[in-house]
């Protein structure tokens, strides 16, 4: 539910340029992004869905991701080691946790690596959605984790690998590619025309770059997915308890 509300705000940010309304101002975008992330963390905390233990886990994952990003500041192509933990944590703990995990990991690592700039609000939402999508994919499963979970999460890794890149291109495109003749951003053009231009921009500039991310994340999920799911799953089983009226045998 929180994720849904947050996502509407994020959608507005990304769709803004396509609706012939021009690029959103940086100040507004930053306030919107930070505001929604903080608000969703607050709502999750107040409703006790994010208790101290989950919060500690969230902080630990964000810190690990910040450290990983520090090790590999520029990544390899579009690949960055930070996505793997976000994917697995989202898959095991659900969309809300996944979203916060993605957004806060990115925020923490941006502070550490000096990656704060007008692109940050777009990154917060895009990375949050990576975790949220993984969370949706993991919502309907139960029992012990096995190879099927690796397949599902691998598929999510591919989709989010490209999706994350495409979403961030919206900022790039509206900011730096205004003058380009056939694929550049033209403020005020019709949504159809803008989509066509964005499509050719994406294929021409980013598709191969994002392939590094998609492939890298899939490899990480295949190699490390199961042990990480098992470890986080073990933790999750401790986070809740059930009460029974009558002791069963």
């Amino acid at each position: 539910m929180t994720v849904l509300v947050v996502s509407v705000a994020g959608m507005a940010l990304f769709l803004w340029p396509f609706l012939a309304l021009g690029a959103p101002s940086t100040g507004a975008a930053v306030s919107l992004a930070l505001g929604t992330v903080v608000a969703s963390a607050a709502v999750e905390t107040l409703t006790r869905r994010l208790d101290s233990r989950r919060f500690a886990l969230l902080a630990a994952i964000a810190a690990l991701d910040a450290a990983l990003r520090l090790v590999l500041v520029n990544g390899i192509g579009g690949f960055s080691p930070i996505f793997f933990l976000i994917l697995v944590a989202g898959y095991v703990f659900g969309p809300s946790f996944g979203f916060l995990c993605g957004a806060i990991s990115l925020l923490a690592s941006a502070v550490v690596t000096g990656g704060i700039g007008p692109w940050l609000p777009y990154q917060l939402f895009a990375c949050g959605w990576v975790g949220a999508l993984a969370g949706l994919a993991g919502s309907y499963r139960h029992g012990a984790y096995d190879w099927r979970d690796v397949v599902v999460l691998g598929a999510v890794a591919v989709i989010t690998g490209y999706l994350f890149g495409a979403l961030l291109d919206v900022w790039d495109w509206t900011t730096f590619y205004r003058a380009a003749p056939s694929y550049g951003y033209v403020a005020g053009a019709s949504p159809g025309e803008l989509l066509r231009r964005f499509g050719s921009f994406y294929l021409a500039t980013s598709a191969w770059w994002d392939s590094f991310r998609a492939v890298g994340d899939v490899i990480a999920v295949i190699v490390l997915g199961l042990p990480f799911m098992a470890a986080l799953g073990r933790m999750r089983s401790r986070f809740t308890f059930a009460t029974e009226a009558e002791p069963a045998v």
């Binding site: 401790r238 308890f241 009460t243």
Partner: peptide, 21 residues
């Protein structure tokens, strides 16, 4: 038990009159 460890608890557990669960 059970707040940190999770699991399934049954019956009644009062500690200084407070229900543990």
């Amino acid at each position: 038990v059970p707040h940190f460890h999770g699991g399934v608890i049954s019956g009644r557990a009062l500690v200084f009159g407070q229900d543990v669960t």
